[in-house]
Design a protein around this nucleic acid. Structure first.
Lengths: 405, 405
DNA sequence: GCATCTTTGTAAAGTTTGTTTATAATCTAG
DNA sequence: CTAGATTATAAACAAACTTTACAAAGATGC
């Protein structure tokens, strides 16, 4: 399929100007990858001739994308003039819309975070319009903190906890957000903020985050399994997200459980798998076992949340360990299913519940028993920051193609 | 991500020659798509200027890729000189290595079949070396039939019923081929035939076939489920095959069955799902029901194969209908799992058992009961020819990028 | 300390490719 | 049979790349 040279999307004619465009892009990539360097370095790394590099860099510089750093160290001749990608030429913003709060981040064109902002939603702030204005407030707050003009924010990616049509920019269904349905979030944010926007599913964003700078860095085929209140997966194949035909790929909360009759999938109810190994399911398992052990009235124990139950297991509590193990058995089964159909290289466990290290080790141990080569399993590196980093990453991708225009 | 213009794979410099290369490729694509046409037509469809089209076409013609057809009808002025892609400039070959036989096909550069060939393997012909020489024999036979020089066969794609490392060209494990393991088939075929070769899994080839000219034509996200002796799936996402990290994506024969405890996956045994709804499993279900009905001794009934049992069901036989329905229930469950994780637009049922229309309708009916939007389900259009058509398609893709070099 | 070499960067000339404009060839229409 | 339309090539010009030549500025060696 690949020709090794060009890969034109359709049947577009190529003119001399496209050569320059392609070479500018190549040079910009090299400049970003190889840090501060001289034009001579770019000549060597690009394979282009020196005059071409000179003239192309001049063109990029005119756009404000190149910073000059003055003279560098001589290596036996005329000292180089060092240049560098100007990462402050613009900024990108990320927002993670959760069931209870909004978290935001602002980063420069290198993806380096420059500001954070977050807020709890008031009870009457969870409707789409209010969320948009809260988000806009956060955007301005971050700009003010850092003394950045709002016009320098070139792109925004917002993550929502629900089925999201990325192409149309619509959140189709988000049960945790006062049951948002068919919310044209991209258009609303675009209008509110004036900034070009992408909307994505939050779990998918977390997967992208782990790919770019987390537990799955450089792994082309992996699955991010998010276990928190809900259970879902971000599916990353051949270097990019897989959304499916109706944007609902990875809805593994509705998977069946081994040994139990499959129930029909009903989108408006909690899924079969999620009910058992979601946060609430784990807490229910815990209460049942407490009851059986006659400890139901120990309020302190009964009120533990899932991650704390796993902490107890880690400390040696046998009842908690039982809960953890039964969770791991079911999780391992779901992962075995994913592994059979996708054959990913890696599974990353994330979310408040899933990122517990003991759960990961136990699940891994169970999977090693099978004789098919199971995927590696590891916990999230980025934790709750994964979504924001993934959002920044998507915004950077979106912006990159427009920098030279 | 897409810039709308170029999409260079890495950081390769662009020179003027690349312009010509890209434009030649564009023109060749247009020529292939728009059938016989004039240079003036190409000027209009490509957006390039007339002199450029003239000179580029001259270059392509010098490579033997263009046929001149003489004058066409005038439309009020000088009559056009019609040209056409020369599909007989070269040929591509396809081979489907089955457990009992080898089927082959030869096609021109339009993908139009020009010859077929097949043979049953003798008992001592199933080892890799023998298969290669039988395949070579078939290749020469097809060339002789059609009076085509073997040197005009530019590419070969061979499908094998097992886990295949396409990049390395190695059949890792094929239980139906006298347990081939780690067979470097691509290198062997390359050496035997002298032709550039791709090796692929046969189910994956069938999926490609259905995508290019079958039940999934133009559908970017679909899954081909092959039910025959074994049960497997070809996974087609975002317009191309998904192989997974270890080339074993789609091994759904090992999926669990609802209500039954999951057993550990053991690659060298038949999978849990496959044992029940593979050909042999269906025949066992049939025999059990015959026995219960006291009909075990009806030799004629007892010897029926799975597709014939389904034919009986179609004709109204109640016992056979029970078998079909219980198969459909389990198949629908597996498809529901696939739909949840992949969210494909379409499922294509193929293989000797799976392509039975009644099974498809019954499975579809069961899936409509769920309230998540299930994929469309249809049977294979190409039947047993799907693998060969898919192989031709892959060979054409491989050849296209080299035609202009 | 100074000539020589190395390294960096630009200027000038030449090549490839593409476009626009002009021209030739050949048919339809009135 | 002329006027206009359509197709195709030739000539002139423009953009982008390369090679070659050259200038600037420091390191190296005797």
């Amino acid at each position: 399929m690949a020709t090794g040279t060009f890969n034109p999307p359709e049947t577009q004619p190529s003119r001399p100007a496209h050569l320059r465009f392609a070479n500018c892009r190549t040079l910009l990539q090299l400049l970003r990858a190889h840090g501060p360097c001289s034009k001579a370095d770019l000549v060597r790394s690009s394979g282009l001739s020196a005059p071409t590099v000179s003239s192309a860099i001049a063109q990029i510089e005119a756009l404000g994308l190149v910073e000059t750093l003055g003279e560098g160290e001589s290596s036996g001749g005329r000292p180089p003039e060092l240049i560098q990608f100007n990462a402050t030429h613009g900024y990108v913003a990320a927002a993670d819309i959760g069931g209870t709060r909004l978290r935001m981040m602002l980063a420069d064109l290198n993806g380096t975070p420059v500001a954070h902002w977050s807020t709890q939603f008031a009870a009457d702030q969870k409707d789409p319009t209010s969320v948009c204005s809260v988000l806009d407030e956060g955007l301005h707050a971050m700009c003010q903190q850092t003394n950045i003009a709002i016009s320098k924010v070139l792109h925004l990616t917002a993550g929502a906890p629900g089925i999201t049509d990325v192409r149309a920019g619509i959140v189709r269904f988000a049960p945790n957000l006062t049951a948002w349905t068919e919310v044209p979030l991209r258009a609303m944010l675009r209008k509110q903020t004036g900034i070009e926007t992408i909307v994505e599913n939050d779990t998918n964003l977390a997967a992208v985050g782990e790919y770019r700078q987390g537990a799955a860095e450089g792994v082309e085929d992996f699955i991010f399994v998010a276990m928190g209140t809900g259970v879902g997966a971000g599916i990353f194949l051949r270097g990019s997200l897989h959304h499916g035909a109706r944007w609902s790929a990875g809805e593994i909360g509705y998977l069946g459980i081994p040994g139990v009759a499959r129930e029909p999938v009903e989108m408006h109810k909690t899924g079969q798998l999620e009910r058992v190994i979601g946060g609430a399911g784990i807490e229910r398992q815990w209460l049942e076992r407490l009851e059986r052990a006659g400890l139901r009235n120990e309020a302190e124990l009964a009120e533990l949340r899932a991650p704390q139950i796993f902490d107890l297991a880690q400390e040696g509590d046998l009842l908690a360990l039982e809960v953890l193990q039964s969770t791991a058995v079911i999780l391992a089964d779901a992962i075995a299913t994913l592994a059979l159909v996708f054959n990913p290289e890696l599974i990353v466990l994330g979310g408040g519940v899933g990122s517990h290290d003991r759960l990961c080790r136990e699940t891994d141990r169970l999977l090693r028993n099978a004789d098919f080569a199971p995927p590696r399993i590891r916990t999230s590196f980025l934790g709750t920051q994964a979504q924001l980093h993934g959002a920044i990453s998507l915004s950077l991708s979106a912006v990159e193609s427009k920098l030279l225009c």
